[in-house]
């Protein structure tokens, strides 16, 4: 067990836990857009930056990957934290002006106006989808292209990605909900990845429950017999 203070409050955390996890467990709010416990910390959105004092030294660090230590003092409410947090969100709002999730966040951390010229993106480039696809699903169906502000998330060559099984994990994890999954006429469609796959119906209840691509993927991965795989989770 590790004892630290966050904003003056004594907090007990597990060894190896990050400051963000410790804060969340203690009910202290730290905004974060590129963090999810299922994937490795990425430290890209910079919204979770806090001031951490260990001994004599104070550092300005990302809470999502900074590991707690005994008698560490964390401040999430200093002028520096607020100033950076606000401007970073303002920058994101200029990049993606129409995301309700960002507007909500703006209310919480107090961003009143956007003073920068606005682009028309909808993706905040947090890489959550890319990392989930790679780290959790293990498929690398999507990735980044380019660098700097022309960077984007896409499938290679912006063409239907071969490895993509339309599992929808990317859609589920997207913090700003811009990877829609549609199911129409027996197909699952993910417009963003230019991909469409026929749905498989449960051999018992007849409900669609996965795509053919997913079916093949699972078959290969688990080696389970086909008739068993054709039964949905509810009917198993």
């Amino acid at each position: 067990m590790v004892k630290l203070t966050i904003d003056g409050k004594e907090v007990v955390a597990r060894e190896g836990q990050t400051v963000l996890e410790a804060a969340q467990a203690a009910g202290i709010y730290i905004p974060a857009l590129c963090y999810h416990h299922e994937v490795k910390p990425y430290t890209a959105c910079r919204l979770c930056m806090v001031e951490v004092t260990k001994g004599k030294r104070t550092r300005f660090v990302t809470a999502c990957d900074y590991v707690v230590a005994d008698s560490m003092v964390v401040r999430t409410d200093t002028e520096k934290v607020k100033k950076c947090r606000k401007l970073v969100l303002e920058l994101l709002m200029a990049q993606c002006p129409n995301l309700p999730q960002l507007q909500e966040l703006a209310q919480i951390i107090g961003v009143e106006e956007v003073r920068f010229s606005k682009s028309n993106d909808d993706c905040i480039l947090c890489g959550m989808c890319v990392r989930t696809c790679a780290e959790v699903v293990g498929l690398h169906a999507i990735g980044f292209e380019g660098r700097g502000f022309t960077r984007k998330v896409c499938t290679p060559f912006d063409e239907p990605s071969e490895p993509c099984i339309l599992c929808g994990a990317c859609s589920y994890i997207c913090p700003v909900d811009v990877i829609p999954v549609e199911e129409v006429d027996g197909y699952r469609i993910m417009e963003r990845w230019h991909k469409k796959s026929r749905l498989v119906a449960c051999s018992k209840c007849g409900k669609y429950f996965m795509t053919e691509d997913e079916f093949r993927f699972l078959q290969e991965k688990t080696g389970l017999p086909e008739d068993r795989l054709r039964i949905c989770m509810d009917c198993r």
Binding site: Y42, T43, A44, C45, R46, L47, C84, L87, V88, L91, L92, A94, Q95, F116, S117, I124, L125, G127, F144, G146, R147, G148, F149, T150, R151
Partner: peptide
Amino acid sequence: LTEESCGKCVPCREGLRHMLE
């Protein structure tokens, strides 16, 4: 620097873009 920024983190990617603007 705007052209050389890798684009991973927001302040560098978006901040430099607006400084340039």
